[in-house]
Nucleic acid binder design. Structure first.
Lengths: 283, 283
DNA sequence: ACTTGAATATCGTGC
DNA sequence: GCACGATGTTCAAGT
């Protein structure tokens, strides 16, 4: 039998079953009326009530109520489970170190305890990720725009690896930033950093192209333009003329299913483009 | 009886119990051998294996394996659960809209099904949050430094609401940014945005205050003064002169239990201070 | 071990 | 409903 199960056990009975299940490495589910106390990175106390306690052989512990996706209390994998009967009640305690954390569940009454030996079934395949989006574009670059040609993925730069690098129909370098779902202004900042990094890297070329790559205003401190900040502080308009250049040396394209209004504003400010595209084709 | 439980039920038997439990608004736990398919914001498929399915009356659904704190598949609250027997197997499906998402669990075999009517016990008290840290400082402002006086919390600015705003012993405006745990450079950037916004707002006043009054230091180790700036954000380069002013019109203080080395460098670059403080007093 | 960044993040709050 | 920030975020990957 792969599953053991007891209904309305005594505390001592529940303890025996728990210890056996620990020994076998079972996945355990306990329904019962209990209090919960946690102390570690923070601290919390939960009064008496009906809850579901899940104990995993890898050390994870979860306390669920009847609401919410998140457990009301938990312990991450790597913790150690112990059970005991104290003051006539079943007490389950899960501890770990680094940081030191303790989760204690005290059962006033155990309604149902089940344990199952789990085998196999770890082959999860996830689709619709950012990688799918990249694959889709590499197979059909015209989804970005006619004439676009990808030349590298994860191309390194001083601002980190960029998702897709390529050239457009005019031979202008293009940085493509991929997001698998609707994005806000932060994604525009990320794209701006890559573009700036590439403009600096290709600076000489830009000069030759006669497009006046750098504005004369702050030419002295040449690496420190203020438009590439990560956060959302770039709201001051008109701080640079270069971004309004009609033919910038490097283009930026943000690929995402949709973008927020604020993000659209920033894209326009910087002269970047948005291409609406889903990780997988719509039905 | 508040708990119903069936061991090794037939698929039809399991269906009856499930539908009854849905009707009663029970918290449900199902052990069984199953496949899982999800389609929505992403898509995934999970081959056959032993898992624990948790169904909540608020619409949440969780599929847990024997590993990890996170469910391998799930559906958030607000979804609708339905059960049926198809092709001789129990099928549980949870759907929601906006976005459209579907989670389907097909049981080859149900080992154990339990359902419990949950009552009460929603009074969770959590300690050690950022709000605790704010409360602690407002009650004892001298923890920041002698003479510090908070004047507002969540004070608005063009960069968003700042955690605590106040004045130091010299009457200089102070922006305090709170973090409940160890922080990296991003927190310094956040603080810098607030300080810059306030400096702009109070610009005229700052010009007049050009006296030589300097802070007495707060006794912690002074940051090294190296200028090895990597310039990957440079968020306040616009007001360049103000940064090096020995008596800036606005001070910035980052309150956190500890900070990373890179964050310390940036703090020093911008002339900000760090105060080491926990959300709750150490024992 | 520390740091960085993504997630089907989730969850609250404010607009 | 949308956007933004905090979370005992968790988690994987890179350094």
């Amino acid at each position: 039998m792969t599953v053991t199960s007891v209904h309305d056990p005594s505390h001592r009975e529940a303890l025996w079953e728990l210890e056996d299940a620990f020994e076998r490495g079972d996945l355990i589910s306990v329904f019962g009326r209990c209090t919960v106390a946690y102390e570690g990175r923070a601290a919390s106390d939960l009064g008496i009530g009906d809850r579901l306690l899940v104990l995993k052989p890898d050390g994870a512990a979860l306390v669920h109520t009847d609401e919410g996706r998140q457990p009301v209390n938990w312990q991450p994998p790597g913790s150690e489970h112990r059970a005991a009967v104290r003051e006539g009640r079943l007490r389950v305690r899960s501890t770990r170190t680094n940081p030191d954390e303790t989760l204690t569940v005290r059962f006033e009454r155990v309604h149902q305890l089940s344990a199952m030996a789990v085998t196999g079934g770890r082959d999860l395949t996830l689709h619709g990720s950012e990688e799918d989006l990249r694959t889709r574009i590499l197979e059909r670059p015209d989804l970005i725009e006619p004439g676009f040609e990808p030349t590298a993925t994860e191309r390194p730069s001083s601002a980190g690896p960029m998702d897709i690098f390529g050239v457009d129909a005019d031979g202008t370098p293009v940085v493509v930033e991929l997001k698998r779902r609707r994005v806000g202004p932060d994604a525009v900042g990320q794209l701006a950093r890559y573009v700036r990094a590439l403009r600096e890297e290709l600076g000489a070329t830009a000069e030759e192209r006669g497009d006046g790559g750098d504005d004369g205003g702050n030419g002295d401190d040449g690496g420190d333009g203020d438009d590439g900040d990560d956060g959302d502080d770039g709201d001051d308009s008109g701080s640079d003329a270069a971004r309004d250049d009609p033919s910038p040396a490097v283009r930026g394209i943000l690929v995402a299913p949709s973008i927020t209004g604020r993000a659209a504003e920033r894209l326009a400010d910087r002269g970047f483009d948005h291409v609406a595209l889903e990780p997988t084709p719509e039905d």
